[in-house]
Design a protein around this nucleic acid. Sequence first.
DNA 1: CACCGCGGTATTGTCGACAGTCGACCGCAG
DNA 2: CTGCGGTCGACTGTCGACAATACCGCGGTG
Lengths: 220, 220
Amino acid sequence: MPLTPLRRVNLAHDISAQLSQAIVAGDFPAGAVLSEPMLAKRLGVSRAPVREALIELETRGMVEFDERGRSRVPSLTHDDLVDILGIRIALEPRAASLAARRADPLAFVDLEHNLDAMRAAQTPTELARLDTAFHSAIVRASGSRRLHLCWNVVEHQVDLWLAQMQSRVDALCHQLRDTTVAAHAAMFETIRSGDTLRAEELARKHLTDWLDVLPGAPVV
Amino acid sequence: MPLTPLRRVNLAHDISAQLSQAIVAGDFPAGAVLSEPMLAKRLGVSRAPVREALIELETRGMVEFDERGRSRVPSLTHDDLVDILGIRIALEPRAASLAARRADPLAFVDLEHNLDAMRAAQTPTELARLDTAFHSAIVRASGSRRLHLCWNVVEHQVDLWLAQMQSRVDALCHQLRDTTVAAHAAMFETIRSGDTLRAEELARKHLTDWLDVLPGAPVV
DNA sequence: CACCGCGGTATTGTCGACAGTCGACCGCAG
DNA sequence: CTGCGGTCGACTGTCGACAATACCGCGGTG
């Protein structure tokens, strides 16, 4: 073993991750107030790390601060989803292009594992999680820390929207499963081949295709 | 007057703004450690709001946390600048397009004032500040809160880079002043006319032009 | 019955304090 | 002189406490 410890703990970071997960899991419905004492009590910690976690989540759009400083779970509308996808259409082609140029073997492993997992996935929830994870992996593969910071803003927004629109999700996911896997596989191959332009175009098309599935006004 | 004096104070927010300004002003050189007790002492507050401000600045890329939790001013290389501009090329055309569609009169006032101020500006520092402010105003004019969150990641990065590369800045700014004003004016007119496609294209071109001025490898 | 004032309650923003940890420095042995 | 251990100081992460404030329900009043 390389014997490589280790990371001084940071409760705020763990809390942030756990809260984020709880929110997309639907534990806190849209509009719910996340009071600091309540969270601190449930988590068995003091308010300080909870506050820090909430601040981080605010920059990721997972919670909103109202005029009184209380944090709430934002309630997403259809327009919000369109807005989110519009941003992803701006960011992800760039990420795919950079990833193709960078060609990091470790990132390729991640992407390949994700593809395998998605082919084996059963539940729509699992599929949605893996879909988001695949796109996250591409952003990480880009190697740009700042692009990743931007990506954080939209990373879990679609999951949050899915949690709040639980009705239609399952049918949609099932319907799209095979096309999604195919699109991801194509993106992976293209990125691995180093074709930056085509990677960019595939990423854009993958997202606009998804957008077309939704009813409502066009994005661009 | 709508008579709306409110907003319970939030030291963290003020500290964040002040620190951000101090960093781009060069008060803290690249790599400098921003220790919480030091900042708290200088600002006359306790460490709590300082910590929160630092967390916010971290998500904006204005400070970085090292493995021991200390916050440092990141030192930007040429590659970083290219990375930043690549992200802006992804984000800003989208913002311009949305702004053109939204056509918010209040935002137009902001943009126009900025143009006037830039035409009257004298010092390169002032020019750089107004340039960033103009692009910020377009992002705000897009009406997308999430796009603004993404924009926060890159908003002051160019200013920071300028602060760290102080040598060449002045010449560059002076050289580019008139073209910048002209480009901004064209963008403003296009956005006001509601031509989303052209607004998008102008925003992209304005940034890629700037990129071309710099030496080094291409972005795409 | 409708309306207003008022106290209780809950929550935020801020503060000071403490433990754990890490680097810097110094003295000492080899 | 060099390498080592011990000590000191500084900093971070976390905690509990306090003041200020806004909300909620209740009782009093016109």
